[in-house]
Design a protein around this nucleic acid. Structure first.
Lengths: 153, 153
DNA sequence: TATTGTTATACTCTATAACTATA
DNA sequence: TATAGTTATAGAGTATAACAATA
């Protein structure tokens, strides 16, 4: 009988652990699939999706929208630029900044991936009711906010 | 209006993305707190918790119990060994293998961390009912299993 | 001076493979 | 030969800091 006295904690029941394991399994699956089928890293797929859905935006704003590090966004953008899936839009008013814009090629690739992404999401949630899914999403958001609260990055 | 034709996907509503963002925020918080207060990396904390709660076990089994890479377990174990928080138990029947055993120092440290871990978990779930939490955990497990299914690695 | 983008450096976790010593 | 543990190497994401160009 290990750890006889004092408090104990089952890692298997520790929410941060379960959250991490689940998220990693999902991310790893997607990373492998999209890398294999489309040559896109996770970070690149995130950028492409945001640019396709929300229009041109600066690298700085992309960091916020994708919750990724500045360096990660930089490297992902460079890969997408090299493949001509996005291009730069200069900012006449401010020579320092620019916006990234998805190209026609980028949109085509994006529209090939969307159905697969939806299908995988459905597969993850197979057999779970719509109300349950909504509720799950809400709790996930609350946990995310609780975890993000009180950090000034 | 970006992405006028074809299917679109809001990254902000894409479950794998939300899951990843939430898990990363939680993991980052813990990593910083425990690194700062106890000098423990996430991987080291996982090992310590499993060894404290489940008793001595081989590195191989630890990989399975913590869902971490072999190399990650190796490096984490080396750190814990260096600090005498765990030690090796030789296996007389098989000279190749051994088990890792948490030491008295390791247990002391573990028992200092447990209340903090519980408190943080409670903080993440503040204001959420017990039944809701159970349900959330169930769905998380289902998603994890759906994501892990069909990989032989 | 402050900010945008960029590069450099380092660290963690992961992935693959090679190596050792036992079996 | 196969396996447990170990080490080497490389990649992705993160964190910090430095730098150039512009404001």
């Amino acid at each position: 009988m290990p750890s006889s006295g004092g408090e104990r904690l089952r890692l298997q029941d520790f929410l941060p652990y379960r959250l991490s394991v689940a998220a990693n399994a999902v991310s790893r699956h997607i990373a492998r699939a999209y890398e294999h089928q489309f040559g896109l890293k996770n970070a690149q797929w995130r950028l492409l999706a945001v640019l396709a859905d929300e229009g041109p935006m600066t690298p700085q704003r992309l960091c916020g929208r994708t919750v990724m590090d500045k360096v990660t966004v930089m490297r992902a953008a460079q890969g997408l630029l090299r493949r001509r899936l996005v291009r730069r839009l200069a900012n006449p008013a401010d020579g320092r900044s620019h916006r990234l814009l998805i190209t026609a090629d980028g949109k085509r690739l994006y529209h090939r991936i969307v159905p697969l992404a939806r299908a995988y999401e459905a597969q993850l949630l197979a057999g779970i009711g719509g109300r349950e899914i909504d509720h799950f999403r809400q709790l996930l958001r609350r946990i995310e906010q609780a975890a993000s609260a009180g950090r000034e990055g």
